[in-house]
């Protein structure tokens, strides 16, 4: 098993020109020795985690339940703050949520009083994008998630998978630099999840984005990610940082094509045994 020590962001001086250019080109998000405690220190969700998230890559955060992967995503989103350490975007400490970090939640978050098109345009409206451009971009992203026929529908008329597609289109339409996906398919059934995963691959192909995906689904992580960061269970530490090199940078529009790829099974096996280690709390 390859255990990669995460690169330490402190190695780069953010004030120097070299450090800044590194951050802007390579790693928009730097997690610097982040510890997150809950209940006044009685529970440690994350324990001194340091990691750089690379631009234009899909990074999957994976691990057993309660490993702090969602916590890390929420820290990056700015919805929570670390207890120790810092999360930085382009060298600047994250001090709250912002439109440059769009997020898709596991729960359905479409605004029920707005139509699908209005939902997708909402982020742009908040940012003061001209009305005409709002409509055009909303249409574009609705086509991207195959919901153009439902532009005038209300979220209550949609299935769970369609609601998540609205959420993805909405997050993309606000043109975030980083897209945060917090178990976006966690509430969907297996077949719909599969459709959604393939749709996400399609989206990545068309819209280059830095994506951070939190999931507990090993197959999903391997299928979508360029890099998988595996967390240990309580307290959450980085157990492994794996590049999906076996894909050679290719993306597979059909999920079954990935399964036939040499190296896929080894990767899946490795992740399953890591998961087993964490769940059983022992090394085999």
């Amino acid at each position: 098993m390859k255990l990669v020590e995460p690169r330490h962001p402190a190695a780069f001086d953010n004030n120097s020109i070299a450090g800044q250019s590194y951050n802007q080109l390579e790693a928009p998000i730097c997690v610097d020795r982040v510890t997150k405690e809950y209940l006044g220190g009685r529970r440690t969700a994350l324990d001194a985690v340091s990691v750089d998230i690379n631009a234009n890559q899909v990074t999957a955060l994976i691990g057993p339940s309660g490993c702090g992967k969602t916590t890390l995503l929420r820290l990056i989103a700015g919805l929570e703050y670390p207890t120790y350490g810092d999360v930085k975007m382009h060298g600047k400490s994250i001090r709250g949520p912002g439109p440059e970090r769009g997020m898709v939640f596991q729960a359905y978050t479409s605004f029920p009083w707005l139509t699908v098109a209005e939902n997708v345009a909402r982020g742009m409206k908040i940012q003061g994008v001209p009305k005409k451009e709002q409509q055009e971009r909303a249409e574009h992203f609705l086509r991207l998630v195959h919901l153009e026929e439902f532009a005038r529908s209300y979220p209550i008329e949609l299935s769970g998978g369609m609601k998540q597609r609205v959420a993805i289109a909405r997050a993309l339409a606000q043109n975030p630099e980083v897209l945060l996906l917090d178990e976006p398919f966690g509430a969907l059934d297996a077949q719909v999840t599969w459709e959604m995963e393939e749709m996400v691959v399609e989206i990545i192909e068309r819209e280059a984005k830095t994506i951070i995906l939190v999931t507990h689904d090993i197959q999903e992580a391997i299928y979508l990610a360029d890099r998988i960061i595996f967390f240990t269970r309580q307290p959450g530490r980085i157990k492994a940082d794996l590049q999906m090199d076996f894909k050679n940078g290719r993306r597979f529009l059909k999920k079954e094509d990935l399964l036939a790829e040499p190296g896929y099974l080894d990767m899946e096996k490795q992740l399953y045994s890591m998961m087993r280690e964490e769940i059983k709390g022992q090394t085999s």
């Binding site: 989103a77 700015g78 949520p97 912002g98 439109p99 769009g102 908040i126 909405r170 606000q174």
Partner: peptide, 18 residues
């Protein structure tokens, strides 16, 4: 009101008034 509804508005950059 679901917390996620408010949080997703926050991640869109909505102001408190909004």
């Amino acid at each position: 009101v679901p917390k996620e509804l408010i949080e997703s508005a926050q991640t869109m950059g909505a102001s408190r008034g909004h």
